[in-house]
Every structure is written in C-alpha cells, then in structure tokens.
Write a protein that binds this DNA or RNA. Structure first.
Lengths: 198, 198
DNA sequence: TTCATTATTAATACCTCGTTATAACCTTAT
DNA sequence: ATAAGGTTATAACGAGGTATTAATAATGAA
C-alpha cells in the first residue's frame, strides 16, 4: 500500500516539477524527489515524458514558431485593423497557456492580446500603454478562440483611450480600457531612454 | 585569394542559416554548405556560435522566462511571500521582452509579473484575477531588474484587493490594483467549467 | 508463513551531438 | 620549393540520455 501511493505521489510531483521547469535534468529531478536517477527514468518512461534534449528542443521550436507571445508584435492574429479607430484580433488558446491546477487560461495572455491590440489600434504601430483598467469577466478554457475588438474612443494629441472587448463566441470574457501614448520615432526615443541607464 | 572569400562567404551563409533556423546540427550545416563537419566546427568557433544544445537551451529558457509556456506559476522569481498579506518577486528582463523598434520592455511582461504575484499573494495559490487597474509609470529597459511588491489591502470572503508596485532600483515603473478571487478546489472547479464547453 | 508481485536501485553497453588535440592534406602566393 | 592558410581526418573524451538485465527490498495474496 505504501510504495504504490508513494509512486503515484512522486509521479504527480514529477509532473508538477517539469511543468514549472521543463529544463531539469534527471539528476536534478532525482535529488529533488530523493530517489535514484534510474527511478526517475522509469517514471518518465511510465508517464511518457521525453528527455531533457527533447523538452528543450520542443520549447525552442515552439518559441521559433511564434507560439511564444514574446516574439509577436501583436499577441494573436490581426484580423482587421483601421489604425486610429478600430481593430480585431484572434488568439487561439492552448494548454500551454493554462494554470497548472485549473483548466483555465491565465489572465495575462488575455491581457497581452488586448493590450497589444490596443497599442496597435491607437497609432500606426508606435505606442505604449500608460495605464489600463481591465475586467476578466468569464474564465476561458484552453482551446477556446478569443476574438478581441479594440475601439478608439477618444484621442487627444499623443494620448488615445482605447476600449477592448474580448469574446469567445457570444460570451464576453474580458473588458478593458487602455490609455495609450504615441511615441516619437525610435531613434530619438531610444536615445532619450539611455538617460535612464547608468 | 579564393579560399579567403569562400570562407567569408561561408561564414555569412552560416550566420544566415542559423538565423533562420537555430536548431540545425553541425552535420546538417555541413551538408548545406558542402564542407566537412570539422569545418563547421571551426567556423562556429571563429564566429563564437554556441553548439546546438546551447542554442536550444537558450531559446527554451528565453521562452520560459518570457511568459510563454505558462510554465511558471509566478512570472519572475518569488523572493518572499506571506500569503494573505505580502509578497515580493524579481524579474530580470531581457532583449526577448522588448518591443521590436523601441528599446523598452513590453507592458504585458510587467503586467504578468504583477498579476501573478497578486494572485500568489492573495491566497495560498488558488486564485484568479477578476479585474485590475494598472499604470505603467516609467519605461523599462531590457536588462533591468524588476522588483514587484504586492500588498493585500482588503479581504472580504473570497475577494482580495491587492496593490502591486514595481520598481527598478528606486525608480517606480508600475502600479496596479488587482481584485483577486479565491477558487474552490481544482476538481470541482474544473467540473463546473466543463459546462461552458460544447 | 511462504511465495509471487511490484518497486527500486545498480551495472553495463550503446547513442547523439558535441568537445579538444594532433596530424595530414591541399592550394596558392611568394 | 616552401611556408602559410584553409580544410579534413582521426582519436579520445563528456553530458545526458536509452535499453537491457540483474539484484534487492517491500508488499499482497494464498
């Protein structure tokens, strides 16, 4: 009775550890779980978990294929855009975006989509968010497709107030109001930023 | 004369190839450039290009430290945490988090750190953000280290209001107020969510 | 209690994609 | 012809595995 449950527990712990950090070696896992490296290998075999190289390669190619929000200018896919007034984007969520213990998409992905869309809508491309008020209205399941619609509500010089509403089918899941500031050209802007350094 | 230019050309080609696809093995590179594997190694050495494993690991951990595969429960590193009252986290920013044309970190990384910290602070672990009001006070340069401090301001049943302030050194860069809702246990929660499907 | 099963650990050979070091070739410019 | 630069071959090694077989310990059922 004991060993069996220990094993099951360890399997869960293993999954959690790799969920948190997929770049751990078997050796590191073994020491964290206080078992031999061989046991970890058997566990990975039982759970169908690939080796470190595989995991690193998968993460890497995911990152390359733009699955990584960090690599995209607009998080999601821009469906329609009329800079200065309105834009639409689609984001297909997946398992990689979910909380570890709950079957729902993490809020910051939804925020990232809305935020980047707001920024893209306000100005041609060169703008940043100064502030935002957001509501996560309803949970989103991995696999659902988010459609975000941004509308520029008001504009005053470099400032734009943009409303974003995100839906899954008919269901509203997110509402946000962003204050977006247009930027000068990149060169002079980057120069002025360097004052912050040192 | 010839060999020199051939070499230079090959170096350029090599850089281009790896730029397009950093996950090519030396063998693949050798066959693409019609030279021996050893030559590729010498070229990588000359150009300071790391080996495949290294390249994969870098891409992978970039992806992780970004907000990609939702891997981390808290975006950044949890420095201190007293669930229910206060927590501190550190996020070292890097080039992968910046806007393409401006030398500054994208807002949603700052948001993600603050949001996940707010969630982690409100309850032991199981909570989500319902709404937030955020201000991006000052731009952040890639490479700067963000220290976010979350304070639970008020609590009423499952609801917690959490204030987060993020600084780089002494400079305040972000302020946010999050309404966080505690969740029931994962199983029953996930079950109730399934109603949303179909 | 005894025997069979399951879980864990160990030992061994082999693999991939590298590494370093050394030696052997080619061209080609002088 | 010969030195120099560029390329290739060969061998020994390392990290982090796979795959297999065997030994040992703990548990469950007869």
């Amino acid at each position: 009775m004991k060993k069996r449950t220990l094993k099951k527990n360890r399997h869960e712990l293993l999954l959690n550890l790799l969920d948190e950090n997929p770049l751990l070696t078997d050796e590191e896992l073994a020491s964290k779980l206080q078992v031999s490296v061989q046991t970890i290998r058997l566990d990975r075999l039982a759970l169908g978990l690939p080796e470190l190289k595989e995991r690193a390669m998968r993460l890497a190619s995911q990152a390359l294929n733009g699955l990584n929000p960090a690599s995209q200018e607009v998080v999601g896919e821009l469906l329609f855009s009329e800079p200065g007034s309105e834009a639409l984007s689609r984001l297909v969520t997946d398992e990689s975006m979910k909380l570890s213990r709950y079957n729902m998409v993490r809020g910051h992905f939804i925020f990232a989509q809305a935020n980047s869309l707001a920024v893209a809508t306000a100005e041609a491309a060169d703008a940043i968010t100064a502030s935002a008020k957001v509501d996560f209205v309803s949970p989103v399941l991995p696999g659902e497709t988010l459609i975000a619609r941004a509308l520029v509500e008001r504009k005053d010089g470099k400032k734009s107030w943009v409303n974003v509403r995100t839906k899954v089918e008919q269901r509203e899941v997110f509402r946000g109001r962003f204050l977006v500031i247009g930027l000068e050209d990149p060169e002079s802007f980057n120069k002025s930023l360097h004052k912050l350094e040192q």
